[in-house]
Amino acid sequence: MRLLHTSDWHIGRSLHGTDLLAEQDRVLARLAEVVATEGVDVVLVAGDVYDRAVPSADATAVLDRALTRLRSAGAAVVLTPGNHDSARRLGFASGLLAVSGVHVRASTPRLDEPVLLADEHGDVAVYGLPYLEPEVARHELGLAEARSHEAVLTAAMDRVRADLLLRPGTRSVVLAHAFVGGGVASDSERDICIGGVDLVPASVFDGVDYVALGHLHRPQSLSPRVRYSGSPLAYSFGEAGQDKQAWLVDLDADGLADVRPVPLAAPRSLTVLTGELEELLADAAHAPLEEHFVSARLTDPVRPADPMRRLQARFPHCVHLEWTGGAEVTDGRSYQERLAGRSDLEVAGEFVRHVRGLDAGSTERELLGRALLAAGRDEVAR
């Protein structure tokens, strides 16, 4: 049996306020192409299907198209909710969807009921563990004191292993959404730490043939059988240049046979550009980057006028701007100490210099003084 391990689709997410639904639609269509060309039997989606608990109508339409394409390409689908999803909303009509080959495993009390799929070697039991919020899951799992991710996932896996004992010879796959020890985070995941007890040891998942993890957006292997697929798109500029992929997983008669990456080309790459504004606008070497999502870090000693509009004239998908040229290093004194003995006009003038990198002119100082007088700060006029 051949499986395609994916996770963290985050349908509906934006990049610095820019809608990514078109890019998400394209990369999810690529998954259906992989299913068709590689002969994939089952697609696994390990949580964070949507980016928010109440997705928009446009986001649900993207998911609808993605699932339809995957089924049309010939694969069954097993998906679970992550910490961004609402398990109850994602699980709506799961019984009807299962009839069509889309299996949504969103119920914590029923997490030890696998999706049973068969090949020429027999059954494969696919257990979908929804994201387990400790304070909620401990009640659903009947745990009196457990308040950590490790405790609730251990209890969940104990149930899975108990069910597997009743299925001798059955190969097994688990989907889980968690921060597992040894994994490397990016800067686009939402923190799932509850009192510092978010980390889960990989040994919690002992006893199954393959563990398809979600939550961390960087693809990585914690062991040959425990892996993160990562997100199919980069969702922050900290992931710029990161290769995205899914895992192609083969099971034979004895269990895990082979795992290999399947590259997922970005519909639109992310690029960070650093330099002075005029330099970024004129440099011919940046021509191949003009259709990328761009984050610009300007090093001009004085803040340029209207920089975003000018950047977007060349880089229409520039979505983030940071000016670093006028940054000041404080001398270690507190804010109160730095203001001591200074007039309001002096403080306002320093603010102008801080945000612009240039002192206020005489006319500007006059206007600032008049504004402070109008606000009742008449001592500045003396």
Rank of each mutant, 00 (worst) to 15 (best):
Y235N: 04
V174H: 10
S223V: 09
V259G: 12
D187K: 02
D254C: 03
I192L: 12
S186L: 03
R218P: 05
H217D: 11
F237E: 14
F179Q: 05
V208H: 11
H217I: 04
G181A: 15
A240H: 05
G207L: 04
G238W: 01
D243C: 00
R218V: 13
P261I: 07
A253D: 14
D254R: 12
H177P: 10
G196P: 07
G195L: 13
A253N: 05
I194L: 15
P224T: 09
A257E: 15
Y210T: 04
G182T: 06
D252W: 15
S231P: 14
F237I: 01
Q242S: 10
P263N: 02
A178I: 02
P168H: 07
G255I: 07
L256H: 13
S203H: 08
S231I: 02
A176E: 05
H217L: 11
G181Q: 15
T170Y: 02
H215P: 13
F205N: 14
P219T: 12
A185G: 11
S172G: 03
G169P: 00
D254N: 11
S188D: 12
H215A: 09
R227L: 10
P219Q: 11
G230V: 01
P224D: 13
P201W: 02
L199E: 12
A185T: 15
A234F: 00
S188H: 03
V180H: 09
V197S: 14
S188A: 15
S172K: 12
R167S: 08
A212H: 13
G255L: 09
P232F: 08
L175Y: 04
V259D: 04
D206T: 05
A257T: 04
Q245Y: 00
E189T: 07
S188M: 05
E239T: 06
Q242T: 10
G169Q: 09
D250M: 00
D206F: 00
R171V: 12
F205M: 08
Y228R: 13
D250V: 02
Q220C: 13
R225W: 02
A202R: 09
R260T: 12
L199Y: 00
D254A: 15
K244T: 00
C193K: 13
H217S: 08
D187E: 14
L248C: 05
A178P: 07
A253P: 01
A202N: 01
A234W: 00
L248P: 00
F237Y: 09
S223T: 14
V226K: 05
I192M: 11
G255D: 10
D252R: 12
V211C: 08
L256D: 07
G230Y: 03
R260Q: 14
S203R: 15
G182A: 09
L251G: 10
L216T: 06
R171C: 10
Q245L: 14
Q220S: 14
V259E: 02
G241Y: 03
P232N: 13
F179A: 13
A240W: 01
A266F: 00
F179M: 11
P201T: 06
D187L: 02
F205Y: 11
G195D: 09
